[in-house]
Amino acid sequence: MSTPSNPPIRVLFCIGISQSFFDLPVDRIPEVFTAFKTAFGNLEQRFGITVLGTLDDDRVQVGQSSAGWPFTSYIMADVPDLDTVVKVCDQLRTTPVGDGLLWRYARIDTRIGRPVFPEEGASA
């Protein structure tokens, strides 16, 4: 857990959709959406993180995400520690979808930093 001497890590989780998602038959797409809800739902309760905001470009970005930016979805959060960052990323490795895992249909990258303007008294 984070403490005043060990503040949370500011993390941007960047999620990109792969071509294999777009190659699915239309009737299989709902199971992938269900898996995403399972993987990334209730992050606060499951991992003790504080979600600061989310963005989803799915309405204005069509087709496979590029290998990097821009991604399809973003979750910005304050996370207690690096192990928790890994646990959130592991959701793609461990969440089942049909006969495979969620990482077949998406990738996740993270950017780890700190607030631009730390709270008064906090070290920069």
Rank of each mutant, 00 (worst) to 15 (best):
M1K: 06
T3N: 00
P4I: 05
N6F: 03
P8C: 03
I9D: 05
V11R: 07
C14I: 05
G16W: 07
I17W: 04
S18Y: 01
S18A: 02
S20H: 06
F21K: 04
L24M: 14
V26I: 10
D27V: 10
D27F: 11
R28T: 06
R28K: 10
I29M: 15
I29K: 15
P30Y: 11
F33Q: 13
T34L: 10
T34Q: 11
F36E: 00
N42F: 10
L43F: 04
Q45E: 13
F47D: 01
T50P: 06
V51D: 04
V51H: 03
L52G: 04
L52W: 00
L55Q: 02
V60F: 01
Q61H: 08
V62Y: 11
G63E: 02
Q64A: 01
S66Q: 12
G68P: 08
W69F: 15
T72A: 09
T72C: 09
S73D: 09
S73Y: 06
I75G: 03
I75A: 07
I75S: 09
M76S: 07
A77V: 11
A77G: 10
V79I: 14
P80E: 08
P80V: 09
D83K: 03
T84Q: 04
T84D: 00
V85I: 12
V88R: 08
V88D: 09
L92C: 11
R93I: 06
T95H: 15
G98I: 01
G98Y: 07
G100Q: 06
G100A: 05
L101Q: 11
L102R: 08
L102N: 07
W103F: 07
W103L: 09
Y105R: 02
A106D: 03
R107P: 03
R107T: 07
T110A: 15
R111W: 15
R111F: 14
R111A: 14
G113V: 07
G113P: 14
G113F: 12
G113Q: 13
R114M: 15
P115K: 14
F117C: 12
P118G: 13
P118R: 09
E119I: 13
G121T: 10
A122H: 13
A124Y: 10
